[in-house]
């Protein structure tokens, strides 16, 4: 179990007591997401779907790398890692 920092986008901060950066313990990315939801239940519907998968419009980055290109929620964490949660942005004509 290690401690990592988690950075939240502006829109999620009210659901986390106004904090922009949190320290959360966990061995893998999924543990951190579970812990966040446990501590701040209002985050749940924004982050995961009914099956517990990360929602399509949510991107989670581990040290700037999208976790979908790593091992998704199974991605192991090291002490001091930084996770960031951001909305996916797209569109077109």
């Amino acid at each position: 179990m290690v401690t990592v920092s988690v950075r939240l986008p502006t829109v999620l901060r009210p659901a986390a007591g106004g904090q922009s950066k949190l320290s959360v313990a966990g061995a893998a990315v999924g543990d951190v997401v579970d812990r966040l939801i446990e501590d701040y239940p209002a985050l749940e519907s924004n982050l995961v779907d009914d099956e517990g998968s990360v929602r399509k419009f949510v991107n989670i980055y581990l040290n700037d790398e999208d976790i979908r290109f790593l091992e998704s929620l199974e991605t192991p964490l090291s002490e001091g890692d930084e996770l960031a949660i951001l909305p996916a942005v797209a569109g077109g004509q």
Binding site: P9, N59, Y61, D66, A84, G91, G92
Partner: peptide
């Protein structure tokens, strides 16, 4: 990231870096 003339998708890693 979409590499398309009809849609766009912000490159995730560049977007994360710029936002952070």
């Amino acid at each position: 990231e979409a590499g398309s003339s009809r849609i766009y998708r912000l490159d995730g890693n560049q977007y994360a870096r710029a936002a952070l």
